[in-house]
């Protein structure tokens, strides 16, 4: 029996745009599976919807201590990211604000658990931010990323100005967004986190911008393969 989004309470804000694409389960959540040709597409220019992958934010003067206690390695400066040994990315957005992106390896299970187990401790300045619900999450891949982003974003995202693990908080096609350089091995990858309610618009705007680079939507299969081989 094929998987159906309607049997799952959690839904990507743009699931309808994936049409009849085959779906796959990663952990408990549904994603577009992708096809054999995706690995080539990823090298060229691809757009992947990761909105169902768990993510969460923490903010407050005690957030750093909290996250360290939870076993996370923290970026030493704002607008930097650190990939954790278990695959999650921890973004530091300001002196006291952090954004945790779930790992493809465990389907985001660790982050989902992080969010579910958090309780407001009135003695601690550490406030959970519902990033999975406030932000959509797209991964963009391929050699054309700087040229692609130059069409929709005013920040210099060329390799010499935007290194791996760098983070920018900017505007993409007039939508507030966080862009992370999450390149692995030979595959350039940018993660884009934007207002969830604007996801439908931005997906279309990105596909339009990608057209001249033969960019297309892809599934998570090849991305997961790349991530796995990069992790060794």
């Amino acid at each position: 029996m094929s998987l159906s989004i309607h049997h799952h309470a959690e839904r990507s804000p743009i699931y309808e745009l994936h049409g009849n694409a085959a779906l796959t389960l990663l952990g408990e959540r549904l994603f577009v599976a992708g096809s054999q040709s995706d690995s080539e597409q990823l090298q060229c220019c691809a757009l992947i919807d990761l909105s169902n992958l768990p993510r969460v934010g923490f903010r407050g003067t005690d957030s750093a201590t909290y996250l360290q206690r939870e076993g996370y390695q923290l970026p030493d400066a704002p607008n930097r990211a650190v990939v954790q040994a278990s695959g999650e990315s921890l973004l530091r957005l300001s002196q006291t604000e952090y954004f945790l992106l779930g790992s493809l390896h465990d389907g985001g299970a660790r982050i989902a658990s992080e969010e579910a187990s958090w309780h407001y401790d009135e003695g601690q300045a550490n406030y959970l931010l519902p990033r999975q619900d406030s932000h959509a999450w797209f991964a963009l891949t391929g050699a054309y990323l700087p040229k692609l982003f130059a069409k929709v974003c005013g920040v210099d995202l060329r390799a010499e100005a935007f290194s791996v693990d760098a983070v920018v908080q900017t505007s993409v096609a007039r939508v507030n967004a966080i862009v992370v350089n999450a390149g692995i091995a030979d595959l350039p990858i940018f993660h884009l986190l934007c207002d969830r309610a604007s996801a439908h618009y931005l997906w279309g705007a990105l596909l339009d911008a990608m057209e001249e680079f033969d960019g297309k939507p892809a599934g998570i299969g090849s991305l997961l393969d790349s991530a796995t081989s990069a992790a060794g």
């Binding site: 839904r11 804000p13 309808e16 069409k151 929709v152 096609a173 007039r174 939508v175 207002d195 309610a197 604007s198 439908h200 618009y201 931005l202 705007a205 339009d208």
Partner: peptide
């Protein structure tokens, strides 16, 4: 240029 006209949709839009 290529006009960017963002719009927002709720989760129940469909």
């Amino acid at each position: 240029g290529r006009a960017f006209d963002p719009y927002r949709q709720t989760a129940m839009h469909r």
